[in-house]
Simulated scan of single mutants.
Amino acid sequence: MIISKGIAGNIRIGDIRKEKPTDLVELEWFDTEKRILRLRTVGGQEIGFRNLNGEPLKDGDILYESEQQRITVRILPCLCLIFHPRDKMEMAKVCFEIGNRHLPIYINEKAEVVLAYEWPVHQLLKNRDYDVAVSVRVIPQTQTLKMHEWSRKTKFKITLAK
């Protein structure tokens, strides 16, 4: 088994100097934030990976590299909901609705909101007449807000309306 303790770069970013045989680890989008992985590559090699820096894995990340080979990540495509907001207010409303369901989203450079397909969310968006489509895509990265502790030192106050 090959042991890796960090990301050694990305084949899509930067200067990869030497071409060498590349084996792939295929991951679902929801596995990219896991800190410890033990899996098989497409070529049948077993690899154990511990993500010491905590950054989510991206498509093309190099998990292992030696003189003979490199092992990189390929994120598999999945069925997705793609929302095209008409304005900033619509973007805010939809992101609020999705956030209330604790679903991770990805907002790409075209300002599309992309999330893994969920039938109830699809029905919600269709019923509210939002511009939503279903497509098979790669979700390159999802970031969710992670709250680890609450503090009494916050500066804002919450009041209830009468």
Rank of each mutant, 00 (worst) to 15 (best):
L63R: 00
E112C: 02
T159F: 14
K93N: 07
K34L: 14
Y64E: 01
Q123L: 14
L76G: 10
V113K: 00
L24Q: 02
D23C: 06
L24S: 05
N51L: 06
R50E: 15
I75R: 00
I71C: 02
E149G: 13
R86N: 09
K157P: 00
T22K: 02
H102P: 03
I139W: 03
N53Q: 05
L27Q: 03
N127Q: 15
G54Q: 05
C78N: 03
I139T: 05
T22E: 12
K88V: 12
N100R: 13
E33I: 07
Q69H: 12
A133P: 02
H102I: 08
I3Q: 08
Q68L: 14
M89H: 13
I82F: 02
L27D: 05
A8G: 03
G14D: 10
V114S: 01
D61P: 08
K110D: 08
I98F: 04
V114M: 02
S135F: 09
F49S: 00
K153R: 14
F49L: 03
N100W: 10
I62N: 05
G9V: 01
R128F: 09
V121Q: 02
I62K: 00
T154F: 12
W150A: 06
L160D: 14
K126R: 15
N10F: 04
L160P: 04
Y130K: 01
D15N: 09
I2T: 01
R40Q: 06
P85I: 01
N100P: 06
G43V: 03
E28Q: 11
T159P: 04
P140R: 02
E67G: 11
N10K: 03
G54V: 08
G54L: 04
G60V: 02
I36A: 12
C95D: 05
P56E: 00
I158Y: 08
R137S: 10
N127D: 15
N108A: 02
E26K: 11
V132K: 00
D129V: 07
Q141A: 13
E109K: 05
V132R: 00
M89W: 10
K20L: 14
K146D: 11
R74D: 12
